[in-house]
Amino acid sequence: MRALVIDDSRAMRRIVTSILTDLGYEVRDAGHGGEALEVLNEGWLPDLATIDWNMPVMDGLQFVSAVRSNPAWRRMTMMMVTSESEHTQIVRALAAGAHEYMIKPFTADAFRDKLALLGLLPQEVAL
């Protein structure tokens, strides 16, 4: 399975990448929504995108909207991973097309539980 980790913090990208790699994912990352769209436009389509909200250039919500406007990218699951925890923000993200919402801070176990809920744990890990 493939994942695209989108966060302007290199530290957070490393942490999320480390969790996903341990689960068997092939991971690429991007520092903002614009970079992430470049990855998708290359034809590298992930099963999962983890998306920070507040990023320079193109924020997470703009990225979600851009993905939703392209039918070719529909099968990608989008999970916001952000410190934005207000109810209205969560509703906005889900209304824009995000599938799931994970609030920072989180533990590796909580992250894994979210993936299990989404049916995105690689089979050998889920067993």
Binding site: S9, R10, A11, M12, N54, T82, S83, E84, S85, E86, I103, K104, P105
Partner: peptide, 20 residues
């Protein structure tokens, strides 16, 4: 740059929880 990035991210997470 690594230190600023990581230390900044900690402020981001703490700040997000304070905002909430």
């Amino acid at each position: 740059e690594d230190i600023e990035d990581a230390f900044g991210e900690i402020a981001n997470v703490v700040g997000g929880s304070v905002k909430a």
